[in-house]
Nucleic acid binder design. Structure first.
Lengths: 296, 296
DNA sequence: AGATTCTGATAAAATTTTTCTATGGATATT
DNA sequence: AATATCCATAGAAAAATTTTATCAGAATCT
């Protein structure tokens, strides 16, 4: 059954005439006749008694009229709903991010996003870049923020924010610029094996040509905050994202030591699946991030 | 939009596959593709993300799924309703009848009809045959019972019951068979001018070759009951339908005088419009009357 | 009563939509 | 790397919708 037929029926019922319905719907009268006939056959009942000049709807027509109207209304409503979720973003935003973006970058951005779209609720899952990408591929998550590019064919990466890894030390250390090898001189605080940050750290040390085995590791901790506390208390130095020590730097609780002629820069990316359609809320958030990119 | 497309969509959504939907609906996979494409265009949104081997429904698809199911359910329900009013007769039966059938024949029949179909409520409008036919032609009434055929082209008449008009007299009169002219001897009670029964009476007297002016009219009354009372009290004779004096004859309150070699027979008909469709309740009642025809 | 003007029905042609076959490219599985 | 399975696309075939043209019946108006 076609909705079109129901519309035709409704017009005939209202106009009490096949030909008037034809005019109303910009169709010809035989077309109307045909549609009513089809409906009558499909529903196995007579809808109009043709008395020559006038037609009279049957009881069946009265029932059909009520229901047909409801069905068409429901359909219009549905179309409306589908349009509205495009124009009035609300709902749940479930995103994943690796630890630095998830902990130090997104919360601030999300706070200002919530000011614009208060009805949108947001959930951030923090894990490492690898898990974030995996959950996007598996379809669990539609949008992530990561610091590494993986599975390049299936994931679209939009550069979104720069990060710099710096050597963070207690204020007690006087030097501000050192050679890479000098790192080995200082007591070093590290993250637990397997953590994303640990891998990242090792990658950079290797890149500077340092043998990780030769590090003077005094402590292994399992969170960035714990590492920061250890540094504040003069336990040693570590390598951290500049984003993670914004406050501590401002209040001069710790200091940065830079390596001569060397910067540990990296970029965070917004990661999405190349083939998935983002619901409107996600698109909005995506555009928002794009606009705010590189602003911190 | 075709309901068919919604069914296709629902199948794809449930099966999470175009080709499985094709199998389920006995269509080919390209047909399914085409239908989903059409829907997507009509609703102006993507319904499934095609990730190669698997498809994932979008948010829009989730919404459409809910609504499409409801719409289809509503449609099935509607078809059901239209079938049910065929199988479970209930509702209102509005019929018209001329005075004798309406007063003395139908009540009894309706009583036994109600025993079979208790949910059907019945209204009888009693008027003269002319008005009954007019109200059928005007569409006000779908079924009537009358004693005369009028407007034969538009009305279908089904013979339904015989009537005999008899001369009714007080028990005090001894004769039981008289010649037509002898009617003039007796004091005569008549109905008011314009009433159907009066016209009928005049018609029969004229047919017997009697001059109505010569009747010895002692009283003009406006209901059959009043006439009967008058006869019981010995005021005079009258001509009445045999149906209207069934009880009085049984208890011998009055007597019948017949005319030698002459019978005032007529037939009652069930009258319906040739072009109107009878709702199922009416059809049932019509069949019921047909079955009970000539049974009283 | 007869002409006119409504009404809807019908047949045949034109058009549009639906469906199929065949094929291709992509992804997942072994 | 080979195979199987998935969806998309193009073109042909089938089915449906719609139109034009015409008819017959009913109401209306001389």
């Amino acid at each position: 059954m076609d909705i079109h037929q129901l519309r035709v029926f409704i017009s005939v019922f209202k106009n009490k005439s096949f030909s008037k319905a034809a005019k109303e719907l910009f169709l010809t009268q035989p077309t109307i006749s045909e549609h009513i006939k089809t409906l009558e056959e499909e529903l196995n009942c007579i809808l109009f008694d043709r008395l020559g000049k006038i037609i009279i709807p049957t009881k069946e027509a009265e029932i059909l009229y009520q229901n047909a109207q409801e069905i068409i209304e429901k359909l219009e409503e549905l179309k409306d709903t589908l349009q509205k979720i495009k124009s009035k973003p609300s709902g749940n935003l479930h995103i994943a991010a690796s630890s630095i973006p998830g902990t130090y970058i997104l919360p601030k951005l999300i706070s200002s996003f919530k000011n614009i779209y208060p009805e949108i609720s947001i959930q951030i899952d923090i894990s490492d870049s690898n898990s974030v990408i995996e959950s996007i591929i598996s379809g669990e998550i539609l949008l992530g923020v990561v610091g590494t590019k993986l599975h390049k064919s299936k994931i679209e990466y939009l550069p979104f924010m720069d990060d710099e890894l710096v050597i963070v030390s207690p204020n007690s250390i006087e030097e501000s610029y050192i050679e890479p090898e000098e790192i080995l001189k200082y007591p070093f605080i590290t993250r637990e094996e397997g953590s994303g940050t640990r891998k990242e750290m090792e990658k950079w040390l290797r890149q500077m040509g340092l043998d990780i085995q030769k590090l003077n590791i005094v402590c292994t901790l399992s969170s960035t905050d714990a590492v920061k506390e250890a540094i504040k208390n003069g336990l040693g130095i570590s390598i951290l994202s500049i984003h993670s020590i914004r406050d501590e730097l401002e209040y001069k609780k710790i200091k940065i030591i830079r390596i001569k002629n060397y910067r540990m820069n990296r970029t965070f990316y917004i990661a999405t699946h190349t083939m998935r359609t983002l619901p409107y809320v996600y698109k909005i958030f995506y555009e928002f991030l794009k606009e705010k990119a590189f602003s911190l």
